[in-house]
């Protein structure tokens, strides 16, 4: 049900862009106004979410650990899985952000002949990392439309990406992997009953949206074609704040751009903010030094304290006369 709603939503968005450009001639809306609005929503929304997260106090260390904590000098500490300093945390965060370390530990439990078996399950990790790496490569390659002169590594990335030299324009592997991995993540939600049970429209919508973006992008490159020079003139106009609509850019381009705009605008309101959220995960980004350092709860009120010295100063004479031992004569 959630899948159907999301699928219909993406179809409606596609038709909206197609109809808007084909019959209503709203190129300026889909090519200029919406992309600007989307990027502003994205920048402001994500920054707002991050600041809002940063306002939540984290009074004590809640790191998840799976290694030996720092203790006596002759017991070897696992510095990455149970970091006690900034260095360890940094390495751990790098592994988490770039390699999805904690997802790599994913396990699966199932009943076999009446016995509950637990085992390692790497498929989600593999699909996830293929998807994210391919998406990043695709996004990075798109900088060719936004930089003039070209950034240097772009040619290198494109050469590596089209390394197989299949056809012309060269088949870029990142596009194939992106679409394949997104389909895998979608099928996973369809086919595994437990995952299907917990899947919401908010899970399906980004997947369908990204599949739509990948399909229109691949179509433009290999099948229906669009005038890439006009496209770059449009994108360069956008980033130099002198936007201009160019004729000769087909409707498929506006569908692609509109779906991307929707993705950017939808980003801060959805689970997609895990892009920034991963950096602010207290279970990952804190050093496990709860036994070394005293972490003061930020909302503790100030307790009016009186030290023993002050007490003794006040009652010294009385204590002496009652033969109670005092520390200072």
């Amino acid at each position: 049900m959630g899948a159907l709603i999301s699928f219909i939503a993406v179809i409606i968005l596609t038709l909206l862009a197609y109809g808007g450009v084909k019959s209503a001639n709203m190129q300026a809306i889909f090519g200029i106004v919406l992309p600007y609005a989307a990027i502003m929503t994205f920048l402001i929304g994500v920054s707002y979410r991050v600041i809002k997260w940063a306002k939540s106090p984290v009074p004590y260390r809640i790191t998840t650990t799976c290694g030996q904590q720092k203790t006596l000098p002759w017991i070897k500490q696992n510095k990455i899985e149970n970091p006690s300093d900034a260095m360890g945390v940094t390495v751990r965060m790098i592994l988490e952000v770039l390699l999805f370390r904690s997802l790599f530990r994913n396990t699966r439990s199932e009943l076999q002949d009446g016995k509950l078996l637990h085992g390692s399950s790497k498929w989600l990790w593999l699909g996830g990392i293929a998807f994210h790496a391919a998406f990043f490569t695709v996004l990075f390659r798109h900088l060719r439309l936004f930089t003039e002169p070209m950034l240097l590594p772009l040619h290198l990335v494109e050469t590596l990406d089209g390394f197989m030299q299949i056809g012309a324009p060269r088949l870029l592997m990142s596009g194939v992997v992106l679409l394949g991995a997104a389909m895998f993540l979608l099928l996973r939600r369809f086919l595994i009953p437990q995952v299907r049970y917990i899947s919401l429209p908010a899970d399906y919508f980004p997947l369908f949206l990204i599949i739509g973006i990948a399909v229109t992008g691949i179509m433009m490159r290999y099948v229906t074609k669009t005038d890439i020079v006009s496209v770059k003139e449009l994108t360069m106009g956008l980033i130099s704040l002198k936007p201009k609509i160019h004729q000769g850019v087909g409707a498929i381009f506006y569908i692609h751009l509109f779906l991307v705009s929707v993705l950017f605008a939808y980003f801060p309101f959805s689970k997609l903010v895990h892009m920034t959220g991963v950096f602010l995960s207290p279970t990952r980004n804190l050093a496990n030094n709860g036994r070394e350092v005293r972490h003061i709860n930020p909302w503790n009120y100030k307790v009016k304290a009186r030290t023993y010295e002050e007490y003794e100063d006040e009652f010294r004479e009385k204590m002496k006369s009652a033969n109670i031992p005092v520390e200072k004569e």
């Binding site: 990027i39 920048l43 991050v50 936004f146 003039e148 360069m236 106009g237 130099s240 002198k242």
Partner: peptide, 18 residues
């Protein structure tokens, strides 16, 4: 984050409209 996303806006846009 803002710098990475908006970087094309600041990267030699003088040659933009050729």
């Amino acid at each position: 984050f803002l710098a990475l996303v908006t970087f094309p806006f600041f990267y030699k846009t003088g040659k933009a409209n050729v």
